[in-house]
Amino acid sequence: MFVSNNFLRLGVLSALVGMSLGVWMGANEDFVLRPVHAHINLLGFASMMLFGLFYRAFPAAGRGWLPMAHFILSVLGFLILMPSLALMLLQKPFVLPLMIASEIMLVGSMLLFVIIVFMATMKKDYATTA
Results as ranks from 00 to 15, higher is better:
Leu76Thr: 12
Ala57Asp: 00
Gly64Ser: 08
Met49Pro: 00
Val3Met: 08
Ser74Tyr: 04
His39Cys: 05
Phe51His: 01
Arg63Ala: 03
Leu81Thr: 03
Leu53Thr: 09
Leu53Trp: 15
Val75His: 08
Ala27Ser: 11
His70Pro: 00
Leu8Thr: 08
Met88Arg: 14
Ile100Val: 09
Ala120Trp: 06
Leu76Gln: 05
Lys92Cys: 01
Met82Asn: 06
Val117Phe: 01
Ser102Ala: 15
Leu33Asn: 07
Asp125Ile: 11
Tyr126Asp: 00
Val114Leu: 12
Val17Leu: 15
Ala60Thr: 08
Ile72His: 05
Leu10Ile: 14
Gly108Leu: 09
Lys124Trp: 13
His70Val: 01
Asn28Trp: 02
Gly52Phe: 04
Leu76Asp: 08
Phe58Lys: 00
Ala46Met: 12
Phe58Arg: 01
His39Met: 04
Val95Met: 07
Phe7Cys: 14
His37Val: 05
Ala38Met: 12
Ile40His: 01
Leu89Phe: 05
Leu90Ile: 06
Leu89Asn: 05
Leu98Ser: 09
Leu16Thr: 05
Gly26Lys: 03
Ser84Gly: 08
His39Gln: 10
Met19Ala: 14
Arg63Trp: 01
Leu98Lys: 00
Ser84Asn: 10
Gly62Gln: 02
Arg56Ala: 15
Ala127Trp: 12
Leu87His: 00
Leu98Val: 06
Leu50Tyr: 04
Ile116Asp: 04
Trp65Val: 08
Arg56Ser: 14
Phe71Gln: 01
Arg34Cys: 01
Phe118Asn: 11
Leu87Phe: 03
Met110Tyr: 11
Val36Asp: 03
Ser20Leu: 11
Ala61Thr: 05
Leu112Gly: 04
Val32Ala: 13
Phe7Arg: 15
Ala27His: 10
Leu90Tyr: 01
Leu76Phe: 13
Pro59Trp: 03
Ile116Val: 12
Lys123Cys: 01
Met99Val: 06
Ala101Ser: 12
Leu16Lys: 00
His39Gly: 02
Leu10Phe: 13
Met110Trp: 10
Ala130Ile: 15
Ala60Pro: 00
Val95Pro: 00
Pro59Asn: 00
Phe54Val: 09
Ile80Phe: 11
Gly64Ala: 09
Leu53Cys: 10
Met88Ser: 15
Val75Trp: 04
Val12Phe: 11
Ile72Met: 12
Leu76Ile: 14
Gly64Phe: 07
Met122Tyr: 13
Ala101Glu: 03
Thr121His: 02
Met1Glu: 15
Phe7Ala: 14
Pro93Met: 07
His70Asp: 00
Pro83Asp: 12
Leu33Pro: 10
Ala130Arg: 15
Leu50Ile: 02
Phe7Gly: 14
Phe7Asp: 15
Trp65Leu: 09
Ile104Met: 08
Val32Trp: 10
Phe113Thr: 02
Lys123Ser: 07
Val23Gln: 04
Ile104Thr: 02
Pro83Leu: 13
Ser84Glu: 03
